[in-house]
Design a protein around this nucleic acid. Sequence first.
DNA 1: TTGTACGCGTTATCAA
DNA 2: TTGATAACGCGTACAA
Lengths: 352, 352
Amino acid sequence: MKKSKKEVTIYDIAEQLNVSATTVSRALNDHFSIGKETTLAVKKLAKKMGYRPNTIASSLRKNKTNTIGVIVPWIHRPFISSLISGIEEVADKAGYNVIISQSCDSFEKEVTKAQTLYSNRVDGLIVSLAMETKNYEHFYPFQQNDIPLVFVDRVSFEMEADRVIINNFDAAFNATEHLIKMGCRRIAHFAGAQHRNVYRERQEGYINALKKYNLPVDETLIVYSNLSMEEGWKGTEYLLKLSDPPDAIFSANDSAAVAAIQCAKEAGLKIPEDLAVVGFNNDRISSIVEPPLTTITHPAIDMGKIATQQVLKHKENKDVVQSETIVLKTGLTIRTSSLRKVAIKNSVQGLR
Amino acid sequence: MKKSKKEVTIYDIAEQLNVSATTVSRALNDHFSIGKETTLAVKKLAKKMGYRPNTIASSLRKNKTNTIGVIVPWIHRPFISSLISGIEEVADKAGYNVIISQSCDSFEKEVTKAQTLYSNRVDGLIVSLAMETKNYEHFYPFQQNDIPLVFVDRVSFEMEADRVIINNFDAAFNATEHLIKMGCRRIAHFAGAQHRNVYRERQEGYINALKKYNLPVDETLIVYSNLSMEEGWKGTEYLLKLSDPPDAIFSANDSAAVAAIQCAKEAGLKIPEDLAVVGFNNDRISSIVEPPLTTITHPAIDMGKIATQQVLKHKENKDVVQSETIVLKTGLTIRTSSLRKVAIKNSVQGLR
DNA sequence: TTGTACGCGTTATCAA
DNA sequence: TTGATAACGCGTACAA
């Protein structure tokens, strides 16, 4: 049975060198007031003794943890894991750690996680809201104590806080307009929960595009779900059974869109000739599915980076009081799944 | 300019209630020695005053942070993000936080991250090694201070530490044997860095399967790379240009395997008739690509869960001294990309 | 250039 | 059932 040794502290080093703990502390932090030689000697001995600074003690004293808290719905979603990657990169460069929490799209869990992170005295909090969340009081403590709070992607407009988002409305509008220009006239939509900004705005973009081109908005063509592959498959089955089925689907994410392609193909339809499909996110599967999926490009990593920069900005510059909303650009990556006009033309000419 | 208020401490509560801070501390932690009424009164006032426990102070005093550190090569890889998901889930249930760090496959970064996590006095460390890492001294401090250290997937056998792995050898052997049974005779292999256990063992499994069936081991058919899609594509081009090209590829991951399928298809080959392909990991793309990819099932989430349980086990049970190596089962998920026999038979009979 | 003394917020220990 | 006191390891006024 190993006896775990006591850890080395600055006092141990001080004792050996016959200096004060203060001097050791300063030397280790390269304080200018400490002599070159002393500093060197301290560092040398520290290394030799296997000294490891105790961040906990330092944090308590300095009232600063150098840690950024993150709450996301699910870590393993492609968009989210890229987001985290961006957060971690910028945080790391600035000397910050990152504590990650999943809300699992549950309001209750989100509340608990927020409290825990607050108790851990994180220096900033980055949040992408849970599906269920409609109340934001659990973030008040952060606001009240001037802890930078940044929402990403799934945000709240009911709170004073920084936001890093994309223009979901425009993206969805462009996607839908693209389908219209490809000759589609009955365009269905896979929609998400409408109290979450991202899904509401995507639906609004879709509807406005239809209106601009004087196409009817048919509620039977709007399918609400959690946008999983399963729901995408079911939604497609439902749509294809309609007496007047759609000639296109604009899905609020890629998973459901890919499922739509697979389901329609199994039903004997040709993509995009019989059914054009556009997704959202540019997940890796979107370029692998056949035909490749036209989709909206989401700058996930950049969103993480920028959100983190916002946190850091507030830390450095205490004067920054007003909150900012940063809107990032999206792109429409056109692949085969939506090229109905071209596809139809080719097949008429007997090409391919 | 908002003046940030002072945070509420147990002293503030104690003062208001005319009790000692000790009593407040105990009441908040439901210590049995404190009276029902006092406890209730303390909790009520704490809530009213907006008290939030300071985990930092508690950690310093208790010498326990309730935090598990994690170092992984890249957060956004499907396997890794699932792994993290599993870690987070179990840690959360046990009341632990998780600090995540990426090594970006760099040795230097891994060392820095390990030091930082140590300084943060994490109660346990879970590591999946960086590609570059060949030296393990940066983990000594954890061992020496009895901080549970668990390696996952990419592990070191040169250190006394817990390991959670899969049987890469068997998985690769089965994959290769499957190809042989499908009638393949010249099977190529996409291999990774040989000093990392996972890639070395996969290659060994591949070689041993060939030997078992008296097939020659042809070094020109083994392509070493980082197993990215780009490298998978290049590797396939190289293989197809050989004077005696392979009739199958067993890739050490799915990315390179999917690229192989796409490259071969573009070159006019039929999968699996002209080239059978098997991958490794069961990433989402493997079931989306066409034809769907036969691949090895990796219990990523479970590996994360189990690794975390190992950490907790060591915390609870200080007697557990010897380290454990837990080997999880893999499966071979057979999809179309490897069904050469069936495919050939069907095409001969003019089916499909 | 270095040292003294104290406090960060909590909890363990001992005493009442 | 409650309280006084010290201690966790470090950083910072202030003094020398």
